[in-house]
Design a protein around this nucleic acid. Sequence first.
RNA 1: GCCUGAGUGGCGGAAUAGGUAGACGCACAGGACUUAAAAUCCUGCGAGGGUUAUACCUCAUGCCGGUUCAAGUCCGGCCUUAGGCACCA
Length: 798
Amino acid sequence: MYDFKRIEQKWQTYWKEHNTFEAKNGSEKKKYYILVEFPYPSGAGLHVGHVRSYTALDALARKRRMEGYNVLFPMGWDAFGAPAEQYAIANHIHPKDAVQENIKTFKGQIQTIGISFDWNREFATTDADYYKWTQWQFLKFYEHGLAYKAKKPINWCPKCKTGLSNEDSSGGVCERCGTPVVQKEKEQWMLRMSDYAEQLLDGLDDTKFQERTKIAQRNWIGKSTGAEVDFKVADTDETLTVFTTRPDTLYGVTFMVVAPEHPMIETLKDRIQNMDAVRAYQEEARHKSAFERTELVKDKTGVCLEGLKAINPLNDTEIPIYISDYVMMGYGTGAIMAVPAHDDRDYAFARKFDIPIIEVIKGGNIEEAAYTGDGEMVNSGVLNGMTNKKDSIDKMIAYLEETKIGRKKVNYKLQDWIFSRQRFWGEPIPMIYCEDCGWVPVPEKDLPVLLPDVANYEPTDNGESPLAAITDWVNTPCPHCGKMARRETDTMPNWAGSSWYWLRYMDAHNDKEFVSMDAMKYWGKVDWYNGGMEHATRHLLYARFWNQFLYNIGLVPNKEPFEIRTSHGMILGDNGEKMSKSKGNVVNPNEIVENYGADALRTYEMFIGDYEKEAAWSTNGLKGCKRFLDRVWKLQDCLNDKDGYTDEVLINQTIRKVTNDLETMKYNTAVSALMILVNRFEEAKTITRSDLRTLIHLLNPIAPHITEEMNEICKLGTPLCESSWPTYDEAKCESETFTMVVQVNGKVRGKIETKSETSKEEMEQLAREIENVKAHIEGKEIVKTIVVPKKLVNIVVK
RNA sequence: GCCUGAGUGGCGGAAUAGGUAGACGCACAGGACUUAAAAUCCUGCGAGGGUUAUACCUCAUGCCGGUUCAAGUCCGGCCUUAGGCACCA
């Protein structure tokens, strides 16, 4: 048992006093930038899940430093946004104070676990010095036409009383509180992220993200290739344009469907004979929440627009037009051509409304269901007889373009980013509305637009930001004409501050620029970025978009901000469920550090299982790791005066194993390899100083305190944090003998220890001499013998 | 419904250019030390059969097939489960 409290305190002080983890801008050394997602400093304090990912990347950072790199491993606080605000409201304090208090708690907790962050670069997104530049960058978006204000139906959370982006309300419920989201019309600031769909897709090829992350990003961007086709509306000048990925089925169109909000309905309202029914349906659709529209009601509803007919441009057939909420205004053109024979949704609609179904691809049975597979084209004019879907599509698109009734078209699910929130606790959007001049950006010299220091910041029911009620703040002269004008009262979403924070770390105290170009050129991309899988879509996409934009206008040197992206698995309670107060399964890292020490906690979290998978907490498992550290500690009593290594092969193998495992996030097997080494050392009873030094050196990235202390009291050399990472000799990883396995018909019948250089012939000879092997081949015909050098012999008999 | 992963002892998990399944740890059991407990140390530990004891044999990596001298690993088809997307035309 060692005095972990004293030791951990001692070394944490040592690192601080020696600035051991300071990253130096412009150093001669090779740089390495490691980033972990900065946390929301919530009132709940640090979670053992944070400890897992911080320790993992800390181990990498410590190893890189020992490998001679100038490492940037920073930490800060993502302190704007709903959680901080709700905590403040619940505890009746100003969010600013709540944030400060929580940051203090978090920082203290992180420091007790000995993570090697460079605290000199710490900042919070809520610092005026920081959000000044977030606002400045918003103005850049505005300047380049990528920020615009639009009145559009937005996702509104009635509980949080704020607008949500499409990303924040996926599944029709509020990401934050789970309340079903409703539609509300509101003027909102938008960022033209959809313009970047293709670049965001292409850029993935320049990253080394995990494949699953790339797939998630691609799915989110949702590229689909097809065609737009123009349908004339009979007896009018209107054209109804649709997007389809299946222009090959154009001859099978038997009706059209437009979204309830489609503008054509207003344009042609005088010709629609059943306008009352149409209005009623529109009303009904509007009151449906996104949840009802997408989740609950898969049953098709709709109304036929009586008096209107569309004309199929290929064969001049007149077909009916319906409105239905299964067509979304936000995607494509808000209108579709329906081919019930070959699309499940159209099929369901056609069946319900008794619309004809025309088969154009053979292979299915239209009496039973839509057929979406391949087959021979029929009833399709020029396409008849074709059997390859891709060829048919290409041919049809060529025909559409030739006859000018359609064109090739690519669509994306990715939409523009709704950038307004009706909240107090966010970066004020630096725009002013003047009656005469319209929207005017706040001049750069007036940045930051500070949040007012008031007591009332709770969200309002009328959909306005709490800032709107603060007239002193709202009323301000127009920067353009000087007449009294009004500030924008919406604030930015909490994703804003996290969309460029890694850049700020490179030059965190710069008051002239958001970051100097020199700093950005030196640090380059983030080499390794780790965060939660839940951020693999939204945050990562916003951050990449933001960075690509800055790159395109020449403000940053790399188009892609991150090289490697990894994700950690969650730590669950000991019952296998997510930790929560109500379930009573929350493990407090403070208590663990107090009772077992930071090193034990760190070692356990690395040993708990596959880093990328979730893992259930086990206090017994933690105790096992504490026991391991106690045994390491006791090895100092086993030191002898001999030189070199006791077991050259084992040491070299262990260095190789740990070195590789730390690169591939296989922390659990790295710890296990060190446990094996300790087991061997204990069996040997006596070990050399080199044995011990190498063991603690390899263990140091995971358990930095105990290892530094042992290194010091055993006088093994310079502090580990100032020493070079151990190297291994590949040639010395091979032992002189191996266990030769002998199989008969693939079943193991014997093992024998023999020299590594034993020839194939000798191996076969040795194999046959084993008694049990003899018994199994006795009296049988040997068909063949397989010999794998340094592995096994398999004798096949009949 | 679609896209990703993952299914191995009582438990967490090792092992994939196909080559000893169960490393390492936990739990459990027996023993040592102790007045006793804790801690620590030693031994055992997939299931079944077999032996005085060794030996040895059979079965076993979600299920069913296949390829191979040899399959946890490769192929085909299922089942279960976790995560992501979802009326996206």
